[in-house]
């Protein structure tokens, strides 16, 4: 049984670390992992993605459209861009905070992501929207968007990994001084996700 995961966002948002944590957690459980991600010029504010595939029967690290079990979106517009990858009944986790492209600012556009979130809610059944801006303020750090989204993803069940799997990999891959903050973010996301599901 394989799991296909898409992470997406804007260069510099921390998609790569989130991808590393999922890979690490799966590897700890003996699940083979293959992944591919954007490196290079697009990292400078362009659209970036990671494809992540967990399981034995995987040849190619890239995912076909209509086959992702879950999309973890760091930005509403980028999540919509990746939606064609989602399979029927797939899960979407998305941060509500938009990142305005310079092109939009120049054009005087008021891009705020709400149109994107509406589209996702409209077309996808299983959606969890995390207000990461609010969460970051409440938790006192702007650097935990990836953990918030990861927490919600774990809680959705779509990753096939549990909370302890992620905590274990955080303990080994992230400097100790950040552990408490990261665990707090996971906890926060869990509650936020529950609130939305109700």
């Amino acid at each position: 049984m394989s799991k296909n995961i898409v992470l997406c966002g804007v260069g510099g948002q921390g998609t790569i670390l989130a991808s590393k944590l999922i890979s690490g957690a799966a590897m700890n459980k003996g699940i083979p992992v293959k992944s591919a991600e954007t490196i290079g010029m697009a990292q400078r504010g362009g659209s970036v993605f990671s494809h992540l595939r967990l399981g034995d029967d995987v040849d190619c690290p890239m995912i076909a459209s209509g086959s992702a079990d879950i999309i973890i979106g760091f930005e509403p517009g980028e999540t919509v861009r990746m939606l064609p990858y989602l399979k029927k009944g797939g899960q979407v986790i998305v941060s509500s905070r938009p990142v305005m492209p310079v092109t939009a600012a120049l054009a005087g556009s008021n891009y705020n992501g709400s149109e994107m979130l509406d589209y996702i809610r409209n077309k996808v059944e299983k959606v969890i929207v995390i207000d990461t801006e609010k969460a970051c303020k409440e938790l006192g750090s702007a650097k935990i968007v990836n953990l918030l989204l990861l927490g919600a993803a774990v809680n959705s069940g779509a990753l096939g990994l549990d909370d302890e799997d992620i905590r274990k990999v955080i303990r080994t891959k992230i400097p100790e001084k950040f552990h408490e903050l990261n665990f707090k973010a996971l906890e926060y996301a869990k509650n936020a996700a529950i609130n939305i599901l109700i």
Binding site: G45, G46, G66, L86, K87, G90, T103
Partner: peptide
């Protein structure tokens, strides 16, 4: 080809215009 996508062709046609993000100086 196998078909199992969440979005139908009609859904794709309704997709809002996506932000354009050419790489820029930080």
């Amino acid at each position: 080809p196998p078909e199992n996508a969440a979005l139908t062709e009609a859904d794709m046609a309704e997709m809002p215009e996506l932000p354009v993000r050419p790489p820029v100086l930080c």
